[in-house]
Amino acid sequence: MGEDLLWRAIRNNDLGAFTEIYKSYYQFLFAYGMRVNGDKHLVKDAIHELFLEVWKGRDRLPEVAHVGSYLRTILRRKIIKEVPQHQWRSLDEHSYGADAAEYSYEERLVRLQSDEEMKQKVQKAIHSLSKKQLEVIRMKFFDEKSYAEIADLNATTPRTVYNQVYEALKILRKYLGLLF
């Protein structure tokens, strides 16, 4: 079933459709939430609330063109409302790491982990990457950019970007290898 059909099915009280939307969008929303704010507990709570409200108000759900972008917009609003302005930390694509008060991509990766041991492992792994390597990893895996797009932004060739990502992954796997 397509997502718009599922969405309409929720309006018709279909719990199965709701489950399906929840499961297929969770990680998509989570990654987005982590981009808006690096606090994973806050992001988890916001997504939970978002879905509870969708189900509670299922008879009043609007028609939407893209379920994903609709959910992202509400999630963003929720997260912004939660966080007092002075604590605001945004992970803007180009300004990340510029402000000492905000969480960088690497901090977010570490904070994401459930247990201490894993946190330390991830930290160690990330620290072994060069600044450039971490940047291309972020662009490739977090911003979901193509090699051509990253190459354009960095004024280099896709092949070079690929090699940078590949080398970075090799290092990461070496450090994280025991986990898998």
């Binding site: 969770y26 990654a31 994401l112 459930s114 990461l172 898998f180």
Partner: peptide
């Protein structure tokens, strides 16, 4: 997949299961 999931900031699996039970 583990490697990509980690870098793409996916919620670890066991926590995802917890969230699912919560909803």
């Amino acid at each position: 997949d583990h490697l990509i999931g980690l870098m793409a900031m996916q919620l670890p699996d066991e926590e995802l299961q917890d969230e699912f039970r919560r909803i």
